[in-house]
Amino acid sequence: MRRTAAVIGTAIFFVFVPCVVAGVIPWWISRWEFRLSFLGVELTRFVGAALILAGVAGLVDSFARFALQGLGTPAPIAPTQHLVVTGLYRYVRNPIYVAVVAVIFGQAVLFGDWRLFAYGAVFWLLCHLFVVGYEEPTLKESFAAKYEAFRINVPRWIPRLTAWRGDQ
């Protein structure tokens, strides 16, 4: 896939998947109405805002790497030509899913809405099933030894404390 097509495809996927999953659906659930803060502590709202900002930054970075380095998209119908193991991928194998969940949980904390926590947990479970059942076998088939080294050294969900310095 050419770089221009990868960028356009990634941008389209970004609008239709993460923006819906982490924006439209949480809005539909909560209408982004502020409820009582969690544990009665208003400072928790700052934690929520920080999770949202970190998640959005992680999403943008990861999507850009898919298009510019991987020469593909996060969509299974137009996958990357190269395994992406830079940026946040040096810390966690699935930074896009982690970032989306961070945005959803951040909204839950910001707005004080337990329903968003439940939605985020269900979303994460579905991501886990998809990753284990489809993504990992597909990546193993497509990238063989490179993916195996990446898989062994970089955790699926909980980020490493130090960056993996493997094949980049």
Rank of each mutant, 00 (worst) to 15 (best):
A54L: 15
G55P: 05
G58S: 15
L59E: 10
L59F: 01
V60M: 13
D61P: 04
D61Q: 13
S62Q: 06
S62R: 04
S62M: 04
R65F: 00
R65Q: 07
F66H: 07
A67H: 03
L68D: 04
Q69S: 05
G70R: 05
G70K: 08
L71N: 11
G72Y: 03
P76I: 09
A78V: 13
A78T: 12
T80N: 08
Q81R: 14
H82A: 14
H82S: 13
H82T: 12
L83K: 09
V84T: 13
T86G: 10
G87Y: 03
G87D: 06
G87V: 02
L88V: 00
L88F: 09
L88M: 07
R90H: 07
R93I: 03
R93L: 07
N94R: 11
N94F: 10
P95K: 13
Y97P: 09
V100R: 01
V100H: 01
I104P: 08
I104D: 08
G106C: 12
A108I: 13
V109N: 08
V109G: 05
G112H: 07
D113S: 10
D113E: 12
W114P: 08
W114Q: 08
R115Y: 08
L116V: 04
L116D: 06
F117H: 02
F117G: 02
Y119D: 02
G120S: 06
A121P: 00
V122A: 06
V122C: 01
F123L: 01
L125S: 03
L126T: 00
L126Y: 02
L126I: 01
L126Q: 00
L126G: 02
C127I: 00
L129T: 01
L129H: 02
